[in-house]
């Protein structure tokens, strides 16, 4: 029983990180209407920036986090300006392939410049843990979960309580309508895409502490984020939360209870994608 509860808690903590990555992706899909296959690469950039700050400047990743978020927001905005903006009206296939190419480009630039090795960040609180009765929770994990929850809360406040948020939701629902009532759609897209990338980068900072930084670290998170938004329904931000929890907890259960589970848990997201897609396509109107 203790093992079971411990497993649930581990899964829940993991889901905070997933929700952070996935809500960024959901923002790009929902507001801008772009399925960003390069999403994981912004996570990778965040992870490397955190590593660089720690290794060269001695700055703790948690302190450099706000700076990194702003920097990657700018990179995201630039990406929007030079590429995404030009395919907004193109067929979905072209949009998809463009971001896919961007992802390959960024990932391999990182490989070229930094090599394929993983880089770890050392922090004083790395090995710390919290004891709650019989439960033991890794300090960084708890911290990451707390931060993710905080940021997601902030995202919801922005979306539902500010003018910018209302504009984003208006654009998401009806681009032309939003234009007609005087919303600068291009500006909203730029901000939404930038924020989407920044959220991925923040997740990347956390990943650098929890795991490591490497050129390919983003891919698996991006795949899981796709699983989550497919489960949640495209662009549905609230759905992202429960889908993240579902994925995090299922993975933890597989890890604990399936023999050799560590290797299999990375396949859980796939079953979720398939399950959801198959269910949805056969429940359709036909």
């Amino acid at each position: 029983m203790d093992l079971f509860v411990q497993t649930l808690v581990n899964g829940l903590l993991q889901s905070g990180l997933y929700a952070l990555v996935a809500s960024g992706l959901a923002l790009a899909v929902g507001v801008v209407g772009i399925v960003n296959f390069a999403h994981g690469e912004y996570l990778m950039i965040g992870a490397f920036l955190a590593w660089a700050g720690s290794a060269f400047l001695g700055v703790d990743p948690l302190l450099s986090l706000p700076v990194i978020a702003v920097a990657v927001f700018a990179i995201g905005a630039l990406t929007y300006r030079v590429s995404i903006r030009h395919v907004l009206l193109a067929p979905e296939l072209n949009q998809m392939l463009l971001t896919f190419g961007l992802g390959i480009l960024l990932q391999n630039l990182a490989l070229m410049l930094l090599g394929g090795n993983t880089r770890t960040v050392t922090t004083p609180y790395q090995a710390s843990s919290l004891q709650l009765g019989d439960l033991s929770v890794g300090g960084p994990k708890a911290l990451a979960f707390g931060l993710a929850a905080l940021l997601l809360g902030a995202l919801y406040v922005v979306l539902y309580r500010t003018t910018l948020g209302r504009q984003m939701r208006a654009v998401a629902q009806n681009r032309r309508g939003a234009q007609l009532i005087g919303i600068d759609v291009d500006r909203v897209y730029l901000i939404a895409f930038g924020v989407s990338c920044a959220l991925a980068a923040v997740a990347g900072v956390l990943v650098s502490v929890l795991l490591f930084a490497s050129p390919t670290v983003g891919l698996v998170f991006a795949l899981k984020a796709f699983a989550i938004i497919v489960m949640a329904g495209l662009g549905n931000l609230t759905g992202v939360l429960w889908a993240s929890v579902l994925l995090g907890v299922s993975e933890a259960l597989v890890q604990t209870y399936v023999p050799g589970g560590g290797g299999w848990s990375d396949a859980v997201f796939f079953l979720m994608i398939f399950g959801t897609l198959v269910l949805r396509s056969f429940r359709g109107a036909r």
Binding site: L98, L105, N108, M112, G115, P215
Partner: peptide
Amino acid sequence: SVKDGYLVVYGLVLMLSILWLP
């Protein structure tokens, strides 16, 4: 000339093809 990351060619070519050489 480079050990890793030579796939950069594919990323670049894919992006440029989509934007300018559909």
